[in-house]
């Protein structure tokens, strides 16, 4: 994983609540054995019309949304399945952060493990961002702040370990592997040795 410390980008807004993982990437695209190249399926069934052309009324297809790396989404974003294909698709699509007042557990976990900043912000700040698409935000992971163009600033929660992993670009498997002795000791004590 590459370190993630700062993101500066305009926001795109998808105000729908409860955007589920089938919306983010429909199951029929999950027959892949790769994690690369899923961006072309991101939001597939909203993004394209039945004949394969881009759907002009989909928010993220508008000119002003293109190239935005920060998505502000309605509450309970990422609910549904545990498919990690969802954050893989969003990252490959070009997003680097998703902000919402509520983000589903597994999706949030999966996202942070892949360097996609899935960040929960307060309801009032969420409401403000939803109402003002296209704002240029500066996210500072170390300071845990999001800065608005007018200099206003608000914070977000991030657990210390996830933050450390994001900033250092380390992945968590290394941390687990370093605890091999503890794992062996646990297995001995519980009598569950292999």
């Amino acid at each position: 994983m590459k370190p993630v410390s700062h993101i500066r980008s305009r926001t795109a807004v998808l105000a729908h609540e409860n955007i589920d993982t089938d919306r983010i990437i429909p199951a029929r695209f999950l027959t892949t054995t790769e994690r690369a190249g899923l961006g072309r399926f991101a939001f597939n069934d909203w993004r394209y019309l039945a004949d394969g052309r881009e759907n002009p009324s989909f928010e993220l297809n508008r000119d002003e949304a293109r190239g935005c790396e920060i998505l502000v989404a309605g509450r309970n974003f990422g609910c549904g399945s545990s498919r990690e294909h969802a954050p893989w698709a969003l990252l490959d699509y070009g997003l680097r952060a998703v902000l919402s007042s509520e983000i589903a557990d597994i999706f949030r976990n999966n996202s942070l493990k892949n360097g996609l900043l899935a960040l929960v912000i307060s309801e009032s700040e969420h409401r403000y961002l939803l109402a003002h698409p296209g704002l240029e935000l500066a996210i500072d992971v170390a300071a845990q702040t999001i800065e608005l163009p007018d200099g206003g600033r608000f914070g977000f929660q991030l657990d210390a370990f996830a933050k450390h992993c994001l900033l250092a670009g380390v992945d968590q498997l290394g941390f687990l592997l370093a605890h091999n002795d503890s794992i062996e000791q646990y297995e001995r004590l519980r009598g569950v040795a292999a």
Partner: peptide
Amino acid sequence: FGIGTTEVGH
């Protein structure tokens, strides 16, 4: 509980 693919690897 359900986990993502990175965690399957873990």
